[in-house]
Computed example of a mutant assay.
Amino acid sequence: MAEEHVEFRVITPKVQQALLAQQTRLRDRARLLISCPDRPGIVAAVSQFLYQQGANIVQSDQHSTDPSSGLFFMRIEFELPNLGAHWDELTGRFAEVARTFQMTWRFNRAHVPKRMAVFVSKEEHCLLELLWQWQSGDLYADLVMVVSNHPDAGATVAPLGIPFYHIPVTPETKKDAEAKQLALLASHKVDLVVLARYMQILSGDFVRQYPNRIINIHHSFLPAFIGRNPYARAYQRGVKLIGATAHYVTEDLDEGPIIEQDVQRVDHRDEVEDLKRIGRQIERTVLVRAVKWHLEDRILTYNNRTIVFR
């Protein structure tokens, strides 16, 4: 049975209050995510199952890549009084429905916050936006640590009671540094890693430990200007739109499934520094959206693409 109460780390009373209010509101709420071959009757079968268990569906979204031969994706959010007492029975009984439709599926208790770690380098604008949204209760997560290859962000997170780990990274120490990082993530049972302008390329060994659980913000509207210094290259190209892309990290640099993107118009008057200034605002909002959707179980992936039920 899923735990009925989740202990957050020692943090400021204001943050604690916001998170506990969310936890109480979500106590009897759960989410069901499904992917399977498309065929008639899926929605009816799932809805009927939940009705028979006494659940009330509060949100339902679905998408088919091709109704005749494609894949079907579904996200249902529902409430069931005294959910914890029914959890094992609920999930066990649904397995029979899932077998009938060849589903890949999972139930998640909404009140159980995902344990999140944020990686950052020197630029803190994305980290600051994540912290602000988290403190206000708009990002429902247990923020268990901030990790950086520079010491700068330590003073930012210390007043919030968030553990900060400074792990320098050089070409010679990269392997050992990643081993320390992975050990920290494992010891804190981290569910999601957010790269908030963490200016290091993670190794394939690292990425494979967290498939579709590492979100990066790239300061470019991918697939344009992959890699480093995209604003300088965008300026040289004379672009009229700049943007940012949040995506899941894969072993292929900046080519993982895209979660969210946004753009803003620029013109010939804007220098490289102007593009960077405008881009910072886009980056912080795009990253927060992607993280929020992941925390709320709104994302399904297939074929290096995402289905995002907003």
Rank of each mutant, 00 (worst) to 15 (best):
E3R: 15
F8S: 12
T12V: 14
K14N: 14
K14R: 15
Q17G: 11
A21K: 15
Q23P: 07
L26T: 09
L26W: 14
A30L: 13
L32I: 09
I34W: 10
I42M: 05
V43Y: 01
S47R: 07
V58N: 10
F73W: 12
M74S: 10
M74H: 10
R75Q: 11
F78G: 00
L80C: 03
L83Q: 00
A85K: 11
D88G: 00
E89L: 08
G92M: 13
R93S: 12
V97M: 03
R99L: 07
T100F: 06
W105V: 10
R106T: 08
N108W: 10
K114E: 10
A117D: 05
L127V: 09
L131N: 04
S136P: 12
L143G: 07
V147L: 13
A155C: 15
H166Q: 07
E172Q: 13
E172D: 14
E172T: 12
A177M: 10
L182W: 07
L182V: 13
L184E: 09
H188L: 11
D191W: 01
P211F: 00
N212Q: 13
I215N: 04
I215L: 05
F221G: 04
L222N: 02
A224T: 11
I226H: 01
N229D: 15
L241K: 02
I242F: 04
I242G: 03
G243W: 08
V249T: 09
D254A: 02
G256P: 02
V263C: 01
R265Q: 01
V266T: 01
E271F: 00
Q281S: 04
I282K: 01
L287T: 03
R289V: 00
R289P: 03
V291I: 01
H294Q: 14
H294T: 07
E296R: 13
D297A: 06
D297C: 01
R298W: 09
N303L: 03
V308K: 05
R310L: 04
